[in-house]
Design a protein around this nucleic acid. Sequence first.
DNA 1: ATAAGTGTATTAATAATGTTAGTACACTTC
DNA 2: GAAGTGTACTAACATTATTAATACACTTAT
Lengths: 130, 130
Amino acid sequence: MICVDYRDTRPIYEQVVEKFKVMILREVLHPDDKIPSVRNLAVDLSINPNTIQRAYAELERQGYIYTVKGKGNFVSDSGQLLLKYKEEIFEEIKNICRTAFEVGITQEEIVQSIKESAQAINGKSGAGMR
Amino acid sequence: MICVDYRDTRPIYEQVVEKFKVMILREVLHPDDKIPSVRNLAVDLSINPNTIQRAYAELERQGYIYTVKGKGNFVSDSGQLLLKYKEEIFEEIKNICRTAFEVGITQEEIVQSIKESAQAINGKSGAGMR
DNA sequence: ATAAGTGTATTAATAATGTTAGTACACTTC
DNA sequence: GAAGTGTACTAACATTATTAATACACTTAT
């Protein structure tokens, strides 16, 4: 279902959180879908159940999943999720802009690099940004 | 000369590196300018000399400063520095774009957020991007 | 009721990283 | 020679991420 990258400098639980967020936002996972149990996914990824639990706790905190004791974890149904995620992305962009402007990079240069990124990413495997 | 932010999650040496990179790229510091000695800056920031040394070693590795034993550290003179820094920034932007496209955020939305960021940042204290 | 599967909580141990502390050595300048 | 400089090294400490092992409470199915 998902996989982790040990070369990635980010902690495992963070990668797991990110993977699920994207799957939920892309509607690969639908509201009330059951996601793997803590123990199952831990075995699947060959990592410790505690690490998965931490990821799930974070996903619940951010409203992406809800928990039913004794039953499992399920995908939440909130139309606000994508909106919230966009805000996070835009905040990151703002931070990069701040850094960029500070050394004299212009708004136009940044916009241009966005266009090139889009072409590089979407031009590749067809699928693209829906 | 510079300062560190203990609320920042990034390590101190990384903050120091970033501060010097910006000062050099903005030409606040000029080629062959002497920067504070490892011990001096350590006292100044009330942190350990080893931490400064690590920052300076990284700055040298990236070509921002050069070292003369027994004399000190000095700002490098390379017109390539800003170009290299831009590439780093653009790479970050590309990564964010990848994440954004993945959940259906469009190129236009990103460009729009750049414009808003620019206004929020530059519109504020007049100074702006150089 | 029992067993199996689930989330949750707790404590301890381990590993990696960032930081501090202290010391030593080589070089440059005065 | 003294003072200031970069460099190297070892040890210790703090924080964080991860693992390990265990226990408990709940749900479902038998």
